[in-house]
């Protein structure tokens, strides 16, 4: 693999003065033109991770580099932000209701003083995001557009700056089902035509199957499984990934493993493997049979060292 577009190394993000480790020692690399889906339940730290990539959350430890250059504070941050763009879950909230569509798209162009005739650039960006003819949208306001159109405006505004990395926070979760595919196809088309890389945060495994080259599953601030989409989703190794897949209604034949208990809370981090209080292997006695139950309860673990592309953080897999 050539130089990665994004490399996240041992990143930690903390809240509440260090009492909550929302992201706890995460490393991830994203290659050029690669789509990575970051999957997990709310509170697993996936959104915090991508917000830290774009500088919206300060790092407590670790480092993030985009195209080999470390992300720091100050002057370099602005140049970085042109390279890294973000789209949001709620396109309605992400658009200032007082700004017209033209202004929403032009905002980034102005911040980065992009050369060229502004109205033409804006129109081209809208057209490339499927809002055709663009003249029809320029003067409108966000509330006059549908949810899908608003998300297209945000994608247009992000892509207008020619980023190398696009971060997407639940890009289709608030959209109607029939719109979903169109937006995903649009995102994927920018990968194929412009070589942009995408990190998409989602709870929707179907999205990963639809557009992602690789999947990283997060649980309580850690990546517990990462690998090529086909391998992770067809042959998951971590019991958490297996459980997540089993409750997807479209997958038949898999016995449902509904985990009991609440969505995990990062302010109360369990000892040992973070997943052990909900782990079906521990609950069923399988872990005891394998003789690893003490390690599950007492020994914290990270992803196994790089042996292949598909890596897991689970005592049972290593046993």
């Amino acid at each position: 693999m050539s130089e990665p577009v994004l490399s996240v190394t041992n990143v930690q993000v903390q809240f509440g003065g260090g009492s909550v480790r929302a992201v706890d020692t995460v490393s991830l690399e994203v290659g050029r033109g690669e789509v990575v889906a970051l999957v997990g339940e709310s509170g697993c730290g996936k959104t915090t991770l991508i917000r830290s990539i774009i500088g919206l959350e300060p790092l407590a430890a670790g480092s993030i580099a985009v195209e080999g250059r470390p992300v720091g504070r100050g002057r370099g941050l602005r140049a970085l932000r042109r390279k890294v763009q973000m789209i949001f879950q709620d396109p309605t909230g992400a658009l200032n209701p007082r700004h017209s569509i033209y202004e929403a798209v032009a905002e980034g162009l102005r911040i980065h003083k992009v050369k060229g005739h502004e109205p033409t650039l804006v129109a081209e960006a809208l057209a490339s995001a499927g809002l055709r003819p663009p003249e029809r949208y320029l003067r409108r306001f966000p509330h006059e557009l549908s949810g899908g159109q608003r998300q297209r405006v945000l994608i247009a505004a992000a892509m207008a700056l020619g980023p190398t990395l696009l971060l997407a926070d639940e890009p289709v979760a608030s959209l109607d089902a029939s719109i979903r595919g169109e937006i995903l196809a649009l995102m994927r088309s920018f990968v194929d035509t412009r070589g942009v890389s995408i990190v998409a945060v989602t709870h929707d495994l179907g999205l990963a199957w639809n557009i992602a080259d690789r999947v990283a599953v997060m649980y309580l601030g850690r990546i517990v499984e990462v690998g090529p989409t086909e391998e992770v989703l067809r042959a998951p190794k971590h019991p958490y990934t297996q459980a997540l897949l089993s409750v997807v209604p479209e997958i038949e034949g898999l016995e449902q493993q509904i985990l009991t208990g609440e969505t995990p809370d990062p302010s109360r981090m369990p000892s040992g493997c973070r997943f052990h209080p909900r782990c079906p292997l521990v609950a069923s006695g399988e872990a005891e049979r394998l003789g690893i139950v003490d390690r599950c309860r007492g020994v914290d673990l990270e992803l196994e060292p790089e042996v292949g592309a598909h890596r897991v953080a689970c005592h049972a897999v290593r046993a």
Partner: peptide, 22 residues
């Protein structure tokens, strides 16, 4: 705390930009 302020920051807008525009 509005999302569009986050977006402006993500776009690379500084404090002056956010105060003036949003």
């Amino acid at each position: 705390e509005r999302l569009y302020v986050d977006r402006a920051r993500a776009l690379g807008g500084g404090r002056a930009h956010i105060i003036g525009r949003h």
